[in-house]
Amino acid sequence: MTSVLTGFTKSRWFKLVWIVPAILLGLFLVVLAARMIRELPAVASFMTEYPGESELPESAPVGFPAWLGWQHFLNAFFILLIIRTGWQIRTTKRTAAYWTRNNTGLLRTKNPPVRIALHVWFHLSLDTLWVLNGVIFYVLIFATGQWMRIVPLSWDVFPNAVSVAIQYASLNWPTENGWVNYNALQLLAYFITVFIAAPLALITGIRMAPGLAGRFARLDRVFPLPLARAVHFPVMLWFVGFIIVHVTLVLATGALRNLNHMYAARDDLSWWGFGIFAISLVVMAVAWIAARPSILSSLAGLTGSVRR
């Protein structure tokens, strides 16, 4: 018994014994402070003036088109596997196999192909599909006016975001109607994710890509490789944090209605959105399990040679 206890105290899981209570204590103090702040007359007046959302233009669309539901699923699918493979690149010391591009046909270049780890190939392949999906997303949101829902159009978005943060922190959450308008904090989070984090992930990823880093050596003075690495990882952490908070709030603020908005393009309490969401989870779980070296080697072999 003593040896088992000693082994546990030396394991990495023992840190959770201290981390979890510390997090819970921190959350309790935040909620307590937010509730106290809300009672102050000046803060109450501030929150009355800025209830939490900016007014949209009259031309702004109401509701979500069906294509946005498909975009949401594809983005979730790709980013989940991208985060997984990105973490593998950061932590894997010995890869299962290596992939080398076929230097023939349309893929033929003057520079010799670079051998890369199989999980790096999978990461770059997922990145390519994610970027193509992102290009379609950008075209559609600007063509349909959906961009007005996720781009700040007034400076009052910032005081409204502070108001929403106080409401969330005090556990007296704002009344939301995402079908019509996002609150200011949601708007800023979506704007940062779509127009800042995503482009940063792409730019820094291209800078670090095997075979391309050497070709961009002239950029070392203005965009050195270590800088790209230093930015790329925090961007990944942003996406992880965004996903955790996003999913938590979707489920905690009216799951059926929110899932209908996101997946079924309807504003009601039916189970259609939940059903589509459940199917999407099954698809992502199957893809996660199927992403094994044996299967990835077969796929990678279609465009190059795979060797151990």
Rank of each mutant, 00 (worst) to 15 (best):
M47I: 07
T48G: 05
Y50M: 07
L56V: 00
P61D: 04
V62N: 13
F64A: 11
A66P: 13
W67E: 04
Q71T: 14
H72C: 07
N75A: 15
A76N: 12
I82D: 01
I83F: 13
I83Q: 14
I83C: 15
R84F: 04
G86H: 00
T92E: 08
Y98F: 11
Y98P: 05
W99P: 15
R101E: 03
R101V: 03
G105D: 00
G105P: 05
G105Y: 03
L106A: 14
L107K: 15
K110L: 10
K110V: 12
K110T: 11
N111D: 11
P112H: 01
I116Y: 02
F122E: 14
D127T: 12
T128S: 10
L129H: 02
L129E: 02
Y138W: 07
F142K: 12
A143W: 06
T144C: 05
G145A: 00
W147G: 09
M148E: 06
M148S: 09
I150H: 08
V151D: 03
V151M: 11
D156L: 01
N160M: 02
V164D: 01
A165M: 05
A165L: 07
Y168K: 04
Y168T: 04
N172I: 06
N177H: 13
N181F: 08
N181L: 10
A184P: 09
L185A: 01
Q186I: 08
L187V: 07
